[in-house]
Write a protein that binds this DNA or RNA. Sequence first.
DNA 1: ACGGAAAATCGAATAATTTTCGGAAAAATT
DNA 2: AATTTTTCCGAAAATTATTCGATTTTCCGT
Lengths: 234, 234
Amino acid sequence: MTANIETSAQNDKNLLGKQWTELLDRIVENSTRETERKQDRSRRTERQILNAALRVFARDGISRSRIADIAAEAGISTSTLYEYYKSKEDLAYEIPMHHLAEFYAKYRDAAPYTLSARERLVLYLTMSTDYAREHAEWARLLYLEIWPSVFVSETELRHRINDFVRVIHFLIDEGKAEGWIAADRNNYETTALIVGGSNQIIITWLLYRTPKNLTKAGAELAERIVRLLEMEAG
Amino acid sequence: MTANIETSAQNDKNLLGKQWTELLDRIVENSTRETERKQDRSRRTERQILNAALRVFARDGISRSRIADIAAEAGISTSTLYEYYKSKEDLAYEIPMHHLAEFYAKYRDAAPYTLSARERLVLYLTMSTDYAREHAEWARLLYLEIWPSVFVSETELRHRINDFVRVIHFLIDEGKAEGWIAADRNNYETTALIVGGSNQIIITWLLYRTPKNLTKAGAELAERIVRLLEMEAG
DNA sequence: ACGGAAAATCGAATAATTTTCGGAAAAATT
DNA sequence: AATTTTTCCGAAAATTATTCGATTTTCCGT
């Protein structure tokens, strides 16, 4: 019977580990979109459009950007662009996907379940701020223009951003199980602190390039948040 | 001599109190814009435009809204609208101003310097979440569509949003002086936690109406943030 | 290598929307 | 009551997004 209890606890842990892996696999898979284009030429054009759109949108802002400018920057005619994306809005919402998928994949590989939830959370926040620094144009578009306005319409991207929060929810639950997050705290509140604080520091950096070293600031903030939660748990 | 030191401390406190009052007065004044329209009819039209625009923008999102719809909703012709605002973008950035000014005025009256910095901070966050709940359409527009994208362009509204953060900076400095915020903590980081967390809870509510009771959630979050900072200060 | 089918491209036309302009109507001023 | 100022509007122009039909390029089986 005691053996039964022991293995039950062990099973719980295995179960959670499996869920973690499944969650990340699903997120990576859903965010990774393989093109259904048949020709190489076409795949190249697709990349050119996305690159051009990223540059133009980041430079002019979405609403002031013109499709014609993007097409010119991509070296194709305006009408060709419409073969790829059915509207400017569609194009805008498609752009962040590729990098988002890359980020999720990177994180999945860096955060196996062998790490504690605490470690995985710190890593998550650290990596996301660092990713924003590495891809500033993309981050500018995503954080300043699209997130959270993407939620206004029903898009694929919306689900992928929800995934970002979903990971944090999962880690908070684990943190409570591990005991370093107070069990009686509201999850939405804790999530708001983590996501909001982390995004805010990215936004501030994008706007003012302050703090100078975003990587360091992101890592410090992540550590600080976790320590605050630990103190609170007693 | 000892009297001198005493009065010097007293002076510091008076000075800070004066700065607090001046800061809020300036913010209220800058955000309060009196129309320069001469006729009553015209002032009525102006209000009708702003009301209509708020409704339409909140319903359709800024980029999908049409000037013609707003004009129709306001009961005027499209070209008349251009007598009032020189572009759709201008109009969008003007809309949040009125409510923002009202919020600042309310807060100034509710938060005299006789309250401690701690109390004033909790009040600030509580009042701002509550104000969002009371004016959900406005909040939807401001938090989901305009903030932080307004920073992309140089607008009056941008300065008024910066003011929001400025108040928090001021209170953090006071909190350090009062000793309940750790002096060695980075101000940007602390601000990011406070502003980011608070906004995030508003955004979540706007999107999902979760938590049910935003007023309560805002107040709880504010208390929690302050207590976390206190614990950290030891 | 060749011919047809599929895929991709483009220029020109259309549609949707924003913005301007000139004059009429209303209100204020003298 | 005439004149000036302010407000309003219809129609036209300008800008930008989107569609369409024809042409070119690539692919694939023979």
